[in-house]
């Protein structure tokens, strides 16, 4: 009788620790902008001691690759070295303005914090960032407003030659570009300026299509 009770207690304890160890997260990402596309997203649960970027500090080479060219492979490799749970490209390509994608993560117990990044197109080095957000342990749905950051690694010339593409094809050509330099540190993006001249002017971006205000994305996390 005593032994049976003890066994039951141990089993219960094991089950409970299992629930505490692994969290199942449903992560929805919505593009809130008018005309900005997000490149393939990186969604990751990782230890709180890891951060993909820090505001006021120079970007890593892998953050730069994501912010300038949409390549998240380097950041995914970095996260692999700390045994993070990583999901790349949940939208199977670009996340268009006004659309939502969803993914699930089953997280290891040390992976308590969530990050989400993707480049914003068309920008020089703009990206959306949820940075090292502590995931609540209480089941429920949590909604987070996401800001646009500037990696600080490339001058915001707004010349289409310096930007991978405008997937919405609203860009112009033949602009002189803005006479600016790379800022050198990650910060809140000041926004695209654009202009209304498709064949000249200062910017190849379109002021009516390519501006935004924060928040540029919404991340909704359901803790199961």
């Amino acid at each position: 009788m005593t032994r049976k009770l003890l066994t039951t207690a141990l089993t219960t304890a094991t089950l409970m620790s299992t629930t505490l160890m692994a969290q199942e997260l449903e992560v929805k990402i919505t593009n809130n902008t008018n005309g900005i596309y997000f490149t393939p997203l990186l969604v990751s649960a990782h230890p709180s001691t890891t951060a993909l970027f820090t505001t006021g500090v120079a970007a890593s080479a892998h953050l730069k690759a994501m912010a300038e060219g949409g390549d998240v492979s380097g950041l995914a490799t970095d996260l692999g070295t700390v045994n993070a749970d990583v999901m790349t490209n949940p939208a199977s390509g670009l996340l268009a303005p006004g659309t939502t994608t969803m993914t699930t993560l089953v997280t290891a117990d040390e992976n308590t914090n969530l990050s989400v990044v993707a480049m914003m197109l068309p920008t020089n080095d703009g990206f959306i960032g949820l940075n090292n957000w502590k995931v609540p342990t209480t089941p429920g749905t949590y909604t987070i407003n996401i800001n646009a950051y500037d990696a600080g690694t490339e001058a915001n010339t707004e010349l289409i030659a310096d930007i991978p593409a405008d997937p919405g094809t609203k860009n112009g050509t033949g602009a002189t570009g803005f006479n600016v330099t790379a800022e050198g540190y990650v910060h809140i993006h000041r926004g695209n300026v654009g202009d209304s001249d498709a064949s000249g002017g200062k910017s190849d971006l379109d002021a009516a299509s390519h501006r935004w205000l924060n928040p540029v994305a919404t991340v909704s996390v359901t803790v199961k």
Binding site: T55, N147, F178, V180, R190, G191, V193
Partner: peptide, 13 residues
């Protein structure tokens, strides 16, 4: 002012 002076919120943490 020029394009470098533009800002969006948040401006400080």
């Amino acid at each position: 002012l020029s394009s470098i002076h533009r800002f969006d919120n948040p401006t400080a943490m």
